[in-house]
Nucleic acid binder design. Structure first.
Lengths: 336, 336
DNA sequence: TCGTCCACCGGAAACGTTTTCGAACCGAGG
DNA sequence: CCTCGGTTCGAAAACGTTTCCGGTGGACGA
């Protein structure tokens, strides 16, 4: 039988008789034949592959951060349902590669990736702009890029931050501070935006020293907490823009002899796994990280399969989950 | 100029004059041309891609577990240095795929992956045997498979377990129990092997009920701990075969009114991130998860690039890191 | 009996490389 | 002037698909 016939049965075309279809399938099973993705890619100019660029700097390499891990899980499932696979570009130290193009875009178009999701890279990275200027669909996670075939998905960071301070205020706090994320990142910036907005709306002032920036990792928050505790009028509550930093903040408070939440209330952001395991268990704003990955994947495939509609920016809802680091249970116990 | 000339300059052959090489490079830059990976794969029969199959069952989907995340990081760097990229097969619920082959092997050979690393799948999975019977290089992580072009890498789980009970015994404990990992997994089995070996060598007996099996996740360990606490003579120390389970064990002990380590000493295994964040901070056996990934990647590429040598099985060293869950500091304080 | 249409299938071009083979050219040596 | 070796380059086959186009055969109506 001819190659075209085989191709037809494997692609599910209907103009092939049931008997020959069976015969082809039979023989294919016997030889355990699998069609070559490379050849198919070559002629169809589509690879059914989604490129993933993921990079968070050298000191905290890649997907070490739980956020990206969870997103990756969601992404994998999201695109998997739709018939795509993931192409994870191996980030390398500059210069250490075996003479491969360093540019992600370059790598992606070499492999003819049908779309790209980018996360963990700096918004200012020239690679990002190269990506959006290219004509391949791109979905970013937590990076504020939009374009003709480019969009991004993120949690409702502003709303989440407002939720956090409203909760703290509801517990009676007025001296509320924040340990912010890097203002160069979208979530970092938005969470302090939300913090400020809610403080203003509540009529609260933000004294100097009540807003210090960390880098999303515990050590930076430890230092930040120490500096706040050294203030003449230290805060009684702090909104920490990431759980990872919150554990650093708690550690600093505790080793300064304070007890959380009695002396200092803390609410975090993310609801990563450790949040419920630290002591005290963290009150935090949960974002659906797997959901972000899922949404990113589905949005990307949507964009791939009809490229003419410009993709919407997706923002996912967050929710407050109260545990013990804010003193809400204690308050509830007393009051009710 | 001809295609062959272009090919020659891009592959670094020397039989092309410096002037034409420059001209080609110049024009390529102007058109920003990137050679097609698909076409190259088609003719060279190599894709420079490493397939990753990763699956841990439906209730704990995929790379949710920190172990695999860390391994993936190492893997990515290991193969990245050597000029390969990662192809992450999107695991899907059975039946939900858009008519794609369900077999990993099938998917791998479709994409012409040069090698495969497999982890998180059950040793009894028929896919695993299909993989080792195929003629494509395979490295497994924590799965006991060997073959002509197949091997695996794992930590020294036996040695680690011995380290743990020796440490507990050195602290004066004699009633030592274990919450084991699934005996169907290599690390689960080996860690209880090590536990038993060291107990025997120390002349300690293992009473009935002192060895109960969990599934590497906290809830199972919580139940296991409760059952041990209900014993007529409960243990004074327990070696928990995974940190994730150790936090469950601690939780169970604490909510039974016991204090760790005063009433019950615990040592874990893995040294995942949460280990130092729980309270009390976990004494545990550290395995180098990123290192496992690195080793797996390098071994796989080695196997790809000279397929005639049969690959060695790699076992990586572990180390005891003592924190507070075993009472060692307290002991040290008193004694010294 | 003959033309027509439809269901089914094969031929062949195209996709973009790598690689082998041989051709053209140039300088040098006889 | 002819031959020879070496350098540099082009032609063409091959890789394994998809897709378009055309061809065959049978059924069917006229």
């Amino acid at each position: 039988m001819s190659v075209s016939t085989v191709s037809r049965v494997f692609n599910g075309y209907d103009d092939v008789s049931p008997t020959t279809r069976e015969r082809v399938l039979e023989i294919a099973r016997k030889l355990d034949y699998a069609p070559s993705a490379a050849a198919r890619t070559l002629v169809k100019q589509r690879s059914q592959l989604i490129g993933v660029v993921l990079f968070t700097g050298y000191e905290h390499p890649d997907i070490h951060h739980p956020f990206f891990q969870e997103v990756l899980v969601g992404l994998k499932h999201g695109i998997g349902e739709l018939g795509y696979d993931l192409l994870l570009f191996a980030t390398e130290q500059p210069g250490s590669s075996r003479g491969r193009p360093h540019s992600y875009l370059r790598r992606a178009e070499q492999h003819r990736a049908d779309g790209i999701v980018v996360m963990g890279v700096d918004r200012a990275d020239p690679e990002v702009d190269k990506l959006v200027r290219s004509d391949i669909p791109v979905i970013a996670v937590d990076i504020d890029v939009v374009g003709d075939h480019t969009s991004f998905v993120a949690s409702d960071n502003i709303g989440g931050a407002r939720l956090a301070v409203r909760h703290l205020h509801g517990l009676g706090h007025t001296r509320i501070a924040t340990i912010a994320g890097p203002s160069a990142t979208k979530p970092g910036a938005d969470r302090t935006l939300g913090f400020r907005a809610e403080m203003r709306e509540l009529g609260l002032t933000i004294p100097p020293g009540y807003e210090v920036e960390g880098d999303f990792y515990p050590e930076s928050a430890e230092r930040a907490m120490q500096s706040m505790l050294a203030l003449p009028e230290p805060p009684t509550a702090v909104f920490v823009a990431a759980d990872m930093m919150a554990v650093g903040a708690i550690r600093a408070a505790q080793s300064a002899g304070l007890s959380v939440p009695e002396d200092l209330a803390i609410v975090g952001f993310d609801d990563i796994r450790v949040a419920e395991l630290v002591s005290p268990p963290l009150t935090t704003i949960r974002q659906d990280m797997v959901g972000i990955g899922l949404a990113a994947g589905r949005a990307l495939v949507e964009q791939i399969e009809n490229p003419d509609v410009t993709p919407p920016v997706l923002t996912l809802p967050v929710e407050l989950v109260v545990r013990e680091s804010c003193g809400a249970q204690a308050a509830a116990l007393i009051n009710g």
